[in-house]
Design a protein around this nucleic acid. Sequence first.
DNA 1: CCTACCGATCGGTAGG
DNA 2: CCTACCGATCGGTAGG
Lengths: 192, 192
Amino acid sequence: MSRLSRDDIVAGAGRRFALYGYHGTSMRDLGDDLGILGSSIYAHIGGKQELLVAVVERGASFFETSAAHALDSATQPLEILRLLISGHIDVLIEHRSEARTYLTESFFLAEDERTKIIAARDAYEQVFADTIEAARDAGEARPDLDPRLAAIYVLSILNAIERWYDGHGRVSRENLIEDVSSFVRRGVCGEA
Amino acid sequence: MSRLSRDDIVAGAGRRFALYGYHGTSMRDLGDDLGILGSSIYAHIGGKQELLVAVVERGASFFETSAAHALDSATQPLEILRLLISGHIDVLIEHRSEARTYLTESFFLAEDERTKIIAARDAYEQVFADTIEAARDAGEARPDLDPRLAAIYVLSILNAIERWYDGHGRVSRENLIEDVSSFVRRGVCGEA
DNA sequence: CCTACCGATCGGTAGG
DNA sequence: CCTACCGATCGGTAGG
């Protein structure tokens, strides 16, 4: 057993925060998970709040990287939208703890940091809205669509996935991406 | 100032739990909100966990009442679905604290109560899935639709509303119901 | 519903 | 990373 790194501590905190919440996690709980004492954690970090900041920023960064990649990899709006969807699902599956903590515990950040994270989340949401608006302006989406509301609906479907998807059922990652993309495409483009 | 009732205490707990979470709320915080001491709350209830049970059960009951009403008020599947959507949004807006606590804090219930609430939530979700399946079997929805997944998507859009809708912006309750219903109807029925 | 209080647990620190 | 510890706060109770 070698010594733990700061990243180990942050990863452990992410798992705990995702499961029991920031306020439902004590430093002693976290220490137990890591095989050290709660007080020993303070050799690596300045405080509990600093751990939350680290986990949430990590979560946010994965989504931002995904959006940048989607915008770099396609030009057609509906193609970008599909990449945004698949990238978001990948982040949820591959970095579940950080993603979940980012989605549910950001409110407990201190004022300044919370403001930063909300701005980043709004910018990410705006990428979805802009993409949907571009699809509409290109005549690929229905003209009566409100891009901002549609972006919220798409992200609502996506963010809820970590609540119910376990990866071991009958729905594979590929099936999930396909099914969500199909539902969203009809919501955005479809006649009814 | 007359004495508080048990319902007053539960309502206050709902507001606190919705804002700061179960573990982020102390009995003294709650007492402050109610204008009494934290210890005085124990004159009305047995413990903090009992308060969570009361709030969550109240939240769940509003949704169940809404679903029962939707099933009673229509026979055509797509009409029922629209009533399920508008009823759900009404509950979110009119009983925001209880709804939010039900949606986000149920995990912190003790084992037995949590199992009960999860079963109730699954049954509610099943009403959505059955309605969508009925629409599909009646030829009103696209034949390749997975009713269970579609129900999850619809509820994901609905449940997220309490996270962003403030009721004071440019989107009225009626507009919101109309816009969500429209998006969902296309997702369920639409060509793309 | 308040006074007065309890043991347990909390986040965190000094020193090694 | 542990030992030993701190003041603050936690959920909760006895008695009025």
